[in-house]
Design a protein around this nucleic acid. Structure first.
Length: 257
DNA sequence: GAGCAGTGTCATTTA
DNA sequence: TTTAAATGACACTGC
């Protein structure tokens, strides 16, 4: 599993954060949390959680070599994201603070690692827990850890999808803005061309009237006559009183242009 | 101290 | 029916 988070603003390596982000709480609250496991789970199975035991359960001491091995072999301990993580410092020093469910798993002596509890396929998981002879408290805890772990990853992928979708929508907005600008420019270009064409037509119209003469050699008055062309391209000179009444002029005077 | 971003968890729905 | 996945809502934490 894992995502290419290089292109996403808020994305993180899912399995990394799955195990790392739980470590943000302070030491005192960790102790409180761990001791509260007694009320959460040891109502079912009382466990002696003295302060030394709590300390031992809160931290896992690893050598640097072991830490490197963990980083290489199990992505859950690696830090691939750009976000700083407070647990990194302690890990570099050889001590990794356990996440809450790891603390719970250790406190209740679960026979499987948290990673396996979460990531084993259903059949293997069921086979494992049925062969381990778990008591009720352990069974409840191991189911809770699996549910929380699965949901944690689901929440992270859900958030990544949401972020990706947001980025896609923002890109779509930019594309539409560009398209709008292109259409606006095209409209302005068309308006200019229309204006130029009308101006040419006006000049041509005036030129035609300057050249037309009636049978007495007099100019036609543009206020009394107008030019109209039919669908076959023939241009007619019509008195304005009859213009636009039909496509087939009744008082025809073809104009040779 | 307020606001924000990131994250974990729970409840619920969907597949 | 059971399980996993998806998602909204809320709480917590660090900056």
């Amino acid at each position: 599993m894992g995502f290419d988070d290089s292109a996403s603003v808020g994305s993180v390596d899912l399995e990394t954060s799955l195990y790392a982000a739980d470590n943000l709480s302070n030491g005192q609250s960790d102790k409180d949390e761990l001791e509260s496991i007694q009320s959460d789970y040891t109502d079912l199975l009382p466990l002696p959680l003295h302060s030394e035991a709590v300390e031992a359960t809160l931290y896992e001491t690893v050598t640097y070599a072991q830490h490197q091995t963990l980083n290489e072999s199990t992505p859950k301990y690696s830090q691939t994201g750009s976000q700083a993580n407070p647990s990194t410092t302690s890990r570099a020093a050889g001590v990794r603070r356990l996440c809450r469910d790891e603390q719970r798993a250790r406190a209740m002596s679960l026979p499987l690692s948290v990673y396996d509890i979460i990531n084993l396929p259903v059949e293997a998981f069921n086979e494992a827990i049925s062969s381990c002879k778990l008591n009720h408290a352990q069974h409840t805890l191991i189911r809770d850890i699996r549910r929380r772990g699965k949901n944690k990853m689901a929440a992270q992928s859900c958030r990544k999808r949401k972020m990706d979708s947001l980025i896609d929508l923002e890109e779509e907005i930019e594309d539409l803005k560009r398209e709008k600008e292109q259409i606006k420019e095209e409209n302005e270009r068309n308006a200019r061309e229309l204006h130029e064409t009308k101006e040419k037509l006006r000049k041509l119209y005036n030129e035609v009237f300057r050249q037309l003469r009636d049978e007495h050699g007099s100019l036609y008055n543009p206020k009394e006559y107008k030019l109209q062309h039919s669908s076959d391209g023939t241009v007619y000179l019509l008195p304005r009183s009859t213009a636009n009444t039909t496509n087939t002029p009744t008082e025809e005077l073809p104009v040779d242009l």
